[in-house]
């Protein structure tokens, strides 16, 4: 079975780039944007959900994103309850009920057209 990362559990302590500590459920879009602005290596990119399909294993989903200005097509296979942070909205997953059940993390339904926070490397050549 695929394990889910522990940091999505409600109450998990997250350290922002400026050192500030916040609970995972309290994070805002601005926290990611400001942390990326400080980072010398990472920058925020917007990844738009283009398709959501069933994955190879039960509960798995394949999400196709269009990433950044170049609209690079990227597919990721994750468990349906894996949360993504949607700009201006917050945590969202394909199975928000399961996410809430597993992590006690309030979660919206991830839909085609949602714009998720993602990272890329700065100055990649």
């Amino acid at each position: 079975p695929v394990s889910l990362p522990p940091f999505f559990m409600r109450g998990s302590i997250i350290q922002l780039a400026d050192g500030e500590l916040k609970r995972v459920e309290d994070l805002k879009t601005e926290d990611f944007i400001q942390s990326a602005e400080i980072s010398s290596e990472l920058k925020i990119d917007s990844s738009t959900v283009e398709r959501i399909d069933s994955g190879q294993t039960p509960n798995a989903v394949v999400i196709q994103f269009s990433v950044g200005e170049l609209k690079a097509q990227v597919c990721v296979e994750v468990l349906g309850e894996y949360p993504f942070f949607v700009f201006g909205q917050g945590w969202s997953s394909c199975c928000p009920d399961r996410t809430t059940q597993l992590f006690e993390l309030s979660c919206a339904k991830l839909c085609v057209g949602d714009v998720c926070v993602s990272l890329t490397l700065r100055g990649m050549r």
Binding site: F7, Q15, D31, S39, K43, D45, E69, S118, R125
Partner: peptide, 25 residues
């Protein structure tokens, strides 16, 4: 004796998927 439990602190970027490198010029 009760040993103090340390609370794990996770870096902000671990929550964000790393999707694709931006290919700038």
């Amino acid at each position: 004796n009760v040993e103090p439990r340390s609370v794990p602190v996770f870096p902000w970027h671990s929550l964000v998927p790393f999707l694709a490198p931006t290919q700038s010029d």
